[in-house]
Design a protein around this nucleic acid. Structure first.
Lengths: 105, 105
DNA sequence: TTGACATGCAAGTAACTGCTTGCATATAAT
DNA sequence: ATTATATGCAAGCAGTTACTTGCATGTCAA
């Protein structure tokens, strides 16, 4: 199971989300390929990719001198299952709580 | 539509996520109630709640001198719909991409 | 009206983040 | 072998963040 803090932190940056979008559009790109389309230094991209990798959102595979990057969607699913979904259902309960609260007046 | 950056940034902090958990357990708590169970200064909690409110994850209602806090699960659903779900499906496509890439050798 | 209570506002600080620059290493191509 | 390419590593720096402390404001209750 991935560390939820690493995960949320990784998703918190728009540059990293864009990076994931580009990998989603075309998985398995090298660092250079990814840099070519982003308005950022290579080192900047590297650092973002490191964060994504630490969060287990991106997996890496070396081919010669090239580093291929692959998306791993599993942690996103985990976020949904363990975090987002539970905030979906209780709308009815929330309304009950609200009603109870307001009736205190 | 909520600003996705505010949203992800708001979720990036474990203290804020805990705060949302407590509101999920019991919606409509006052600032004081929330502070009582968190290991943080009142001002710290206030600032976190401000971030959550800016992200539209928490709504506020005043009752006299008390400030009631209510969870708004809608932005979470938006994150799922617009961001997480699209990374679910393409596992097959990702595998095809991977296969194609590796066959370059 | 006075005192207690719930919260707001503002400034200061330490840690973290994102980004850049410069140099180093390893693989491929000629 | 030499040169070009793909990437790594490390230090520095500005902006942001989370947190604290001190004081101010507004509401309720006796």
């Amino acid at each position: 199971m991935s560390d939820p803090d690493l995960l949320f932190k990784a998703l918190a940056d728009p540059g990293r989300r864009k990076l994931m979008d580009r990998l989603h559009a075309h998985d398995g790109q090298t660092l250079g390929e990814l840099c070519r389309h982003l308005d950022m230094t290579r080192q900047g991209v590297t650092q973002h990719l490191d964060v994504l990798e630490a969060a287990n959102l991106v997996a890496v595979q070396w081919r010669g001198r090239e580093k291929l990057h692959f998306l791993n969607p599993v942690p996103l699913q985990e976020i949904y299952d363990r975090w987002i979904r539970k905030f979906e259902r209780p709308r009815l309960k929330a309304l009950r709580d609200l009603k109870r609260r307001l009736e205190k007046d």
